Simulated scan of single mutants.
Amino acid sequence: MYLVIRVRGTTGVIQGIADTLDMLRLNRISHAVLVEENPSYEGMLQKAKDYITWGEIDAEFVAAMIAKRGRLPGNVKVTDEYVAENTDYDNIEELAKDVVESKVKLADVGIKPVFRLHPPRKGYEDIRLSVKEGGSLGYRGEEIKDLGKRML
């Protein structure tokens, strides 16, 4: 499972890349989504690599993100009580484990698929360079958790 975060804005975006960002539901800066690791999504990530950053995440981080920034329709926070009453899971940690294993999607249990994060503490690195060049864009691997924690 990948966590994908939009880093750059909409000014001057080529139409094909803008459509890809819309399909990923990344409409604003600092929005994040969870996507599966499959060739279709990996092609979309490569196409939009100049506007996003992504990497692999674990169930522990997904649970923290759902608890802190997860929302239901009506901008209501997700709680353990909601998860226990409205799903087959007892708490957010169990739900996060199955989300990472792609057994269930957030939308299937009523949680909005887009996480509206804060801008990162201490800011982004250069937003015009890739991670390999010392910037913020592109594939990060496990380092996405560090950026995600700064944005929660």
Rank of each mutant, 00 (worst) to 15 (best):
R8W: 03
M23D: 13
M44Q: 15
R8H: 02
G12M: 00
M23W: 07
A48E: 08
M151I: 05
T20P: 02
S130R: 14
Y41M: 13
K68M: 13
V131N: 05
V35T: 14
A64D: 15
N86F: 08
T11V: 14
A59V: 07
P73D: 03
E81G: 11
T79Y: 01
S30V: 01
L72K: 11
I92W: 05
D98G: 03
V100A: 03
V104S: 04
K77S: 14
Y124P: 08
L45E: 02
I92A: 09
F115R: 09
G12L: 09
K103E: 04
F115P: 12
Y139M: 05
E133S: 07
R8G: 08
V99G: 06
V35W: 04
E94L: 01
S130G: 15
R6F: 10
D90F: 14
P113I: 00
K49L: 12
G123W: 11
D146K: 15
G16H: 06
P119N: 06
V13W: 10
I29E: 14
D50K: 14
D146H: 14
I17E: 03
L147A: 00
Y2C: 02
L72E: 00
Y51F: 12
K103A: 11
T87Y: 02
D108V: 06
R116A: 15
N27W: 12
I14K: 13
M1N: 04
V76I: 11
R6D: 07
P73W: 03
N86E: 09
G16L: 10
E85S: 10
K149H: 11
D19Q: 12
Y124K: 01
V131L: 05
I66N: 04
Y2Q: 04
E85I: 02
G70K: 04
M65C: 08
I57Y: 05
D19K: 09
G70A: 06
V100F: 00
R140G: 10
D98F: 09
D90V: 12
L106V: 11
A64V: 09
F61L: 11
I17A: 00
I144K: 05
M1I: 03
D146M: 10
V33N: 05
G74C: 06
I5H: 02
D19H: 07
Q46G: 06
I57F: 09
V13H: 02
K132I: 14
E60T: 15
M151S: 04
P39S: 08
E125P: 07
I111H: 05
G55P: 10
E56F: 02
R71F: 04
L152R: 06
Y82M: 01
K122G: 06
A107Q: 14
L24S: 07
T11K: 15
R150L: 03
A59R: 03
E56S: 13
G110N: 11
G138Q: 07
P113W: 00
D22S: 14
L152N: 07
Y139P: 11
G123R: 09
W54P: 01
D146I: 15
R71V: 00
R150Q: 06
L152E: 06
L24V: 01
R116G: 10
V4C: 08
M1V: 01
L21C: 11
D90L: 12
V33G: 07
K47L: 15
A107K: 13
V76E: 11
